[in-house]
């Protein structure tokens, strides 16, 4: 191991100060469940590392209709919160108990596909992210945060400090399809939120994971379901658009072809379930 210094800042200002002093040479690590395996294997050889476990970024609270999640809150903390059921479902479907006790919500936004299951749910929930650096803080929609495979809007001297999730009562659905029932990389992950106006879909969020360079929105499919009552025909067309529009890849888990097929299938199943739920509620 070549790490020369390991810092455990006790506050956000201290953490930002360290980033300023050491620049891009300083590797940031929260739960370490992505960073440590790479260091253990010698794939990542950072000179200096900053751990976030003591930086006070692990709070999780509801304020003014918003769930505010500290970037270093663990997946276990997310599983325990009652405010946003879909996030519980996403956490439950992520990794294993020990990993959830270590891995953080913030770290999930930096996890390359097929990881990033919680990020997919956050995308469907219109989450916002707060980035902080020496020049102060900025908030942006999560949808604008991702810019490519392993790339995002975070500047070298910035930290992700918080994720905000508006608390709403819209019907949501989270489906992670993998090769096993639990603790498995995704073939595809689908997170959906529909806003209804009577029996018409007023707005839709369809987020997909493991079928693109980062968690993505199926915008064409969203457009196709808005203004409809989710007839079988609409669902078929929207599911086909989601399958068409995603950018799956081949890895040890699944082929590009299979991921695309399963994207269509699970978008269609999710829409069917949400349509039935709406009928059940007499919309």
């Amino acid at each position: 191991m070549t790490v020369r210094s390991y810092f455990l800042p006790r506050s956000l200002p201290e953490a930002i100060g360290l980033l300023e002093t050491h620049g891009p040479e300083l590797l940031v690590m929260a739960g370490g469940t992505v960073a440590m395996p790479l260091i253990n294997d010698g794939i990542s050889l950072p000179g200096a590392v900053m751990g976030l476990r003591r930086a006070g970024l692990d709070t999780l609270e509801v304020a003014g209709g918003t769930l505010r999640i500290g970037a270093a809150a663990t997946l276990t903390q997310l599983l325990a919160q009652p405010a946003v059921p879909m996030l519980r479902e996403a956490a439950r479907n992520t990794a294993s108990w020990s990993i959830r006790n270590m891995g953080t919500v913030g770290g999930n936004l930096f996890t390359p596909p097929p990881g990033g299951d919680v990020a997919v749910a956050l995308l469907a929930l219109d989450a916002g992210v707060t980035l902080a650096g020496p020049r102060g803080e900025r908030v942006l929609p999560l949808a604008d945060f991702f810019t490519g495979f392993l790339s995002n809007q975070l500047a070298a001297d910035e930290l992700l400090v918080e994720i905000q999730v508006p608390i709403r009562s819209d019907p949501t659905l989270f489906i992670k399809f993998g090769r096993k029932h639990a603790n498995t990389p995704a073939v595809v992950t689908v997170a959906m939120r529909l806003e209804w106006d009577g029996n018409v879909v007023a707005d839709a969020r369809i987020a997909l994971g493991a079928v693109g360079p980062h968690p993505i929105r199926a915008r064409e499919a969203e457009r196709l379901v808005v203004g409809t009552s989710l007839s079988a025909d609409t669902i078929a067309v929207a599911a086909a658009a989601a399958a068409q529009g995603c950018e799956p890849f081949t890895d040890a888990i699944a082929t590009e072809w299979y991921r695309r097929r399963m994207t269509g299938l699970f978008v269609s199943r999710a829409l069917e379930q949400l349509a039935q739920g709406a009928e059940g509620e007499g919309r």
């Binding site: 455990l8 739960g31 370490g32 395996p37 253990n40 476990r53 276990t76 108990w97 006790n101 270590m102």
Partner: peptide, 13 residues
């Protein structure tokens, strides 16, 4: 009292 993986945990933590 919570399970964690000691291979991913710097002892400083």
């Amino acid at each position: 009292d919570e399970p964690m993986l000691s291979c991913l945990l710097p002892v400083e933590d």
